[in-house]
Amino acid sequence: MLPYLCPGCQSQLKVKSLSCKQCGTEVIGLYDLPALARLPQEDQTFILNFVKCSGSLKDMAKQMGLSYPTVRNLLDEIILKITKYEQ
């Protein structure tokens, strides 16, 4: 799992370098993580399962053993976080 928070101060981490395994080229800079990668692991798992359920909150509710509004509220929380990251 890609770390997304600084273990020292809990701030959002940024990508400093990326390297090509094939030719060894290294790209250095200070890049923001994509919005989805900035989410906590449980939120990322939720999104993965949501996509696997074809975006059906009813199926998600069944799978998670939770009620429909509870699952919809969890999704609303994630939407709120992503919107915040995008700003």
Binding site: G65, L66, S67, Y68, P69, T70
Partner: peptide, 11 residues
């Protein structure tokens, strides 16, 4: 109980 049950089932 509404975290687990809501909607028509709860009704």
């Amino acid at each position: 109980p509404f975290e687990k049950v809501a909607g028509w089932k709860a009704f």
